[in-house]
């Protein structure tokens, strides 16, 4: 059995909307092992993105404990959390979030630039990942010169360039047609087989079924979890 990588104990995240309290996350308990493949499904507003953001240290829970690689990360400062995020977590968004003025290669390089990695190493790594993802001939294109599928592949390359342990993808195929969506999922699953933990939020039941652990959320709670045998 693998090591526990992520452990959420009674995590709650509430938003105050006017008079009312909205429970984006309501007493969530979750354990994820290194290399797990989870899909998170559920109706809109059920707290899927919030769960991903809490795991990715972009959001702080109001109560509960979160252990990441046995470290209690909720009590860390923002600076310390940024460091962990930089080294262990990769984010992929529905709307890609590429920096418009930077080329594909520069977007992929960005996390390494911010981390202060030497230029020669950056260049090597970017070239390698461009080659692996078949984007070499798009290296100097800006985001607006790329197709949706290509943009998401650039975003995946950027999310993995720091070699994180966990990949958090929030509706990564939401803005893509069926075929490029399929391709993106394959890229992500390949990364998962190489050992990275993969969490995908999706509305597509077919995609959801591909994950070995299928989590269903409703009203900020994990309602059910299905274990699918047919791993990819």
């Amino acid at each position: 059995m693998n090591e526990t990588q992520i452990q959420l104990d009674n995590i709650t995240r509430t938003y105050q909307v006017g008079e009312e309290k909205v429970h984006a996350l309501d007493n969530v308990n979750l354990r994820i092992e290194a290399g797990d493949y989870l899909s998170i499904m559920g109706p809109s507003g059920s707290g899927k993105s919030t769960l991903l953001n809490v795991i990715g240290l972009l959001d702080r829970p109001d109560t509960g404990n979160y252990f990441l690689n046995d470290t209690a990360v909720t009590s860390l400062t923002e600076e310390q959390q940024a460091k962990i995020r930089q080294q262990t977590i990769g984010f992929i968004f529905q709307s890609f979030h590429l920096v418009p003025r930077l080329t594909a290669a520069e977007n992929i390089e960005l996390p390494m630039l911010l981390a202060g990695i030497a230029p020669t190493e950056r260049k090597q790594r970017v070239e390698k990942v461009l080659h692996n993802t078949g984007l070499s001939d798009r290296a100097n294109h800006r985001p607006d010169q790329l197709s949706g599928g290509q943009r998401q592949r650039v975003a995946i390359a950027r999310a993995t360039i720091m070699q994180p342990q966990i990949l958090l993808a929030d509706e990564p195929t939401g803005n893509l047609d069926r075929k490029s969506g399929e391709e993106i999922i394959e890229v992500l699953e390949t990364l998962n087989t190489q050992g990275i933990s993969l969490l995908i939020v999706t509305h597509d039941p077919e995609l959801g079924r591909r994950a070995s652990r299928e989590i269903k959320m409703i009203d900020g709670k994990i309602q059910s979890e299905l274990h699918n045998k047919q791993s990819p």
């Binding site: 923002e78 600076e79 940024a82 460091k83 995020r85 984010f91 920096v99 960005l110 996390p111 911010l114």
Partner: peptide, 16 residues
């Protein structure tokens, strides 16, 4: 804003 959010997502600290 989106760019700054992204910087944070890829590990930029507030100081940076």
């Amino acid at each position: 804003t989106a760019e700054i959010g992204l910087f944070k997502a890829v590990g930029a600290s507030p100081t940076l």
